[in-house]
């Protein structure tokens, strides 16, 4: 019984120290932040209860948007090569095929109405400031905007809930800025333009599932300003499902052996447990001769 007492003291000392330098120190260095908001309730410029008319939306999108954006799924190729577009706008405008699927409806409507406030970039593009955001605001009547949203939703392809599907979401949402070396994905915007445009080089995201972790990403992607005040990365406005797909993809690329690790881990532990029991029985037998 003395050995159990010693073990208890040992476990207590190690446990207290562990608690202090891991969970506790972590909570001090990374305080909890506001929960992710997938309704984007701060955006109120457009009445999103209106029911959109996709046919009218198609006309509006074709007049207002395709001069800059490609929409492959609707048969509109990008109006110019990615590098030229980046030279013209600072960043390559994303293809809008998946827009209706990945962006939250409220966000998308308000983004069209006023991109800068939707992206939480007012600090970078103050009203009346010298710098202009490359995409103009479209302060159209709410019905027109909801028509465009309805159109974008109607053309968006369904993607499977697998690695290929997650990749499509990642490329549509983050692909204009971020590389993902471990999946051979290069940002559509050339690095030099990005650096000038953003004022910071967007990091390669291959290992961010490990360096930042799911918990951090969940909040960061929803609104970068919450965790990195003043950062030039925009709020991209993904709905919850799309964001989960993006994070799943980051895990599939950055931690591709997770499933293998967990299965093998279980086997190794079972095996070790059997070893420990056998070792105990053997020890009992041997020590019964000397005690």
């Amino acid at each position: 019984m003395k050995e159990f007492k010693i073990l208890a003291v040992l476990v207590a000392l190690v446990g207290i120290t562990y608690y202090g330098i891991e969970p506790y120190a972590h909570s001090v260095m990374h305080p909890e932040v506001a929960a992710a908001d997938f309704t984007f309730k701060d955006l109120k410029n457009v009445d999103t209860k209106l029911v959109g008319n996709a046919a009218n939306g198609k006309v509006l999108v074709e007049t207002n948007c395709v001069s800059c954006h490609g929409i492959e799924k609707a048969g509109n190729p990008a109006p110019m090569p990615a590098a030229d577009a980046a030279a013209a706008y600072g960043v390559t405008p994303p293809d809008l095929s998946h827009a209706g699927r990945i962006y939250d409806k409220n966000y998308l409507a308000n983004f069209i109405y006023d991109p800068v406030s939707a992206m939480h970039l007012n600090h970078k593009y103050p009203v009346g400031g010298a710098k202009q955001f490359p995409m103009p605001p479209f302060p159209l009547p709410a019905q027109d905007i909801m028509d465009m949203v309805a159109y974008l939703q109607s053309i968006a392809p369904k993607v499977a809930d697998d690695k290929a599907g997650h990749k499509a979401t990642f490329e549509a949402a983050c692909g204009r800025c971020h590389n993902m070396k471990y999946a051979s994905i290069e940002a559509t915007t050339p690095t030099d333009s990005l650096k000038t445009y953003m004022g910071a080089t967007p990091p390669d995201l291959s290992q961010h599932i490990k360096s930042r972790g799911e918990h951090y990403l969940h909040s960061f992607v929803n609104d970068p300003q919450v965790l990195l005040k003043g950062t030039s990365m925009p709020r991209v406005g993904l709905n919850e499902k799309a964001q989960e797909e993006v994070i799943a993809y980051m895990e599939e690329v950055g931690d591709s052996k997770k499933a293998e690790r967990e299965t093998i881990g279980l086997y190794v532990m079972i095996y070790t447990f059997i070893f420990a029991i056998l070792a105990y029985l053997w020890k009992r037998k041997i020590w019964s001769e000397v005690h």
């Binding site: 967990e262 093998i264 279980l266 532990m269 420990a276 070792a279 053997w282 020590w287």
Partner: peptide, 25 residues
């Protein structure tokens, strides 16, 4: 051997259980 080590193997077994838990999870 075998008396001292038999006890050590027993301790080792449970230690490794803890160790592999950390390694994998």
């Amino acid at each position: 051997w075998p008396v001292f080590l038999s006890k050590d193997f027993f301790v080792l077994g449970f230690f490794l259980l803890f160790f592999f838990y950390l390694v994998f999870f």
